[in-house]
Amino acid sequence: MDSNIETRLIFIAPTSDLTPDRIARFVHNLGNEVTVKETCYGVVLQGPRDAVKRTLDEVRKMDPNRIFSKIRAFPMGDLRRCRAHHGSRPGFAQLEKEWKDLCLVEQGLICVEKGEKPPAPKKRQKIPVNDLKKLIDEVSP
């Protein structure tokens, strides 16, 4: 396969009103030399790298903080990674989890957009031994 051909996954965050079908139609209408296929979480694009990049930029504009993307190793419809033949792809579970968490990332992007500096989240830490001793004494004096 031509090394200039790129396959790219586009994900719609669960909070977005966009649908894979709408994005697919939008991509068709753009008229770039890009093949598009709907998936559970968005669409797959395939075509010359520049055309895919141009298409992605346009798609992103539809809902900037809720459209995410990464490239994919296997070309569209490759049987080596077909769920029917091999069970789910090894990377599938991670993608599924990351997709679910895209609404969290969206909140981060909104922060960046507004130029907000969120407070550093509290980390769970182990209780100092003296505090623990106090607690034990309180529970069983």
Binding site: L104, V105, G108, C111, V112, P118, P121
Partner: peptide, 16 residues
């Protein structure tokens, strides 16, 4: 890896 909104906000801002 963020497990809530605050952690996610912090992550995105730090990455940027």
């Amino acid at each position: 890896y963020p497990s809530n909104e605050d952690e996610a906000k912090d992550m995105v801002v730090r990455v940027k």
